[in-house]
């Protein structure tokens, strides 16, 4: 059954986020040969439409309004609902990011529709679109289908393959004028914190530190390694509780759940609480002084040793690799 599926393109710092291209890939599966329509909201975003099309959208609807310059759930909900009203789609896909998590339940609430959150894979099985998502923080998985109304899902970054970019692809870009009113929440200030550069939830490489890092300064070698690998720094709850780093870096059952290609755990014992946040990473490396540490049970590769010796050596080796590549 061919469907029309909308995809919200999420813009951050003037660029589309990777998860939006992954959402296009998800929409393509749900569309089953139908149409994938990109949706862009913002003050000035129409120039990004071509990116969505080159990455697989058939066409794009742009809603430009100064009141959409910053994300608010009220403003964005009005924008997306107006596009839904005009397009009458059978499906909708949004990234499971801070924005997607905040916005999607409002749209689902308004439409009285289902919503399958935090999806990690999508398949067509026996006429159904089957969504797989982690539950119990990745300790188990469930497969879900939509039984009534809009097929609406948010997709977890780093899990669904984007389509191949084709710079020769073209498609229609149209604008929809929407009167945005009654914003009941006003953003007064945005404070950018430690997470400069690569976003933890979207990073392909995560270098994480635990109690073994011993101090705030102890994170420095981890930051250098992450930088060389183009990755992000994370932490265990123990490191956050000990005030070695900000809670925004915490990975675990409480905290962020990450699924990078490479997860390097440094001085992390591997409590079940922490494993829940990272055990679905594709490749896990453990560096720990204690050969009995639980982290070695989930690691693909392990080095028993002092992280303050091992991590700088690793950084140097990766630098050499990059130079030779």
């Amino acid at each position: 059954m061919a469907r029309k599926v909308l995809v919200l393109g999420e813009v951050r710092d003037g660029q589309l986020r990777n998860v939006s291209y992954e959402a296009v890939g998800a929409a393509k599966t749900i569309a089953e040969g139908g149409e994938v329509v990109g949706v862009l909201l913002g003050a000035s975003v129409s120039s990004l439409a071509v990116e969505l099309i080159q990455n697989g959208a058939d066409r794009v609807v742009v809603v430009e309004n100064d009141k959409l310059a910053q994300y608010t759930s009220d403003g964005y909900a009005q924008g997306v609902l107006a596009v839904i009203e005009s397009e009458q789609p059978e499906g909708l896909v949004i990234g499971h990011t801070s924005l997607g998590k905040d916005l999607s339940p409002r749209i689902a609430g308004k439409l009285s529709s289902g919503l399958i959150s935090d999806v990690t894979s999508i398949e067509v099985e026996g006429g159904n679109i089957v969504f797989t998502r982690p539950i119990y923080s990745g300790k188990a998985f469930e497969k879900k289908i939509v039984t009534d109304g809009l097929i609406f899902a948010t997709v977890r970054p780093n899990n669904i393959a984007p389509l191949e970019k084709d710079e020769s692809r073209t498609g229609d870009v149209s604008t929809l004028s929407v009167d945005i009113k009654d914003l009941r929440t006003i953003i007064k200030e945005v404070v950018r914190k430690a997470t400069e550069g690569v976003d933890l939830s979207e990073a392909k490489v995560v270098v994480a530190g635990g109690r073994g890092v011993k101090s705030e300064d102890g994170f420095e070698p981890l930051k250098e390694l992450a930088q060389v690998l183009g990755g992000a720094v994370g932490a265990s709850r123990g490191a956050c509780d000990a005030e070695y780093c900000d809670y925004s870096l915490q990975i675990g059952q409480t905290g962020k759940v990450v699924t990078p290609d490479l997860y390097i755990a440094c001085g992390i014992s591997g409590a079940i609480q922490h494993l829940a946040g990272m055990s679905n990473s594709k490749v896990i490396v453990a560096i720990n002084k204690d050969p009995e540490a639980n982290i070695f049970n989930v690691a693909d590769y392990g080095i028993v040793g002092d992280l303050f010796e091992v991590v700088p050596m690793l950084t140097e080796e990766f630098k050499k690799l990059k130079v030779n590549a």
């Binding site: 289902g114 089957v130 998985f141 039984t147 453990a286 040793g305």
Partner: peptide, 29 residues
């Protein structure tokens, strides 16, 4: 009445035991 339905629940595949490297630290790295 729910708009979605869970059709299956399963546990993730057990990971194979990983490889703990041996030898001089520099060589392990």
């Amino acid at each position: 009445e729910a708009k979605t339905k869970t059709i299956e629940i399963y546990l993730p595949a057990q990971k194979q035991a990983g490889k703990v490297l041996e030898g001089e630290l520099a060589d392990q790295v």
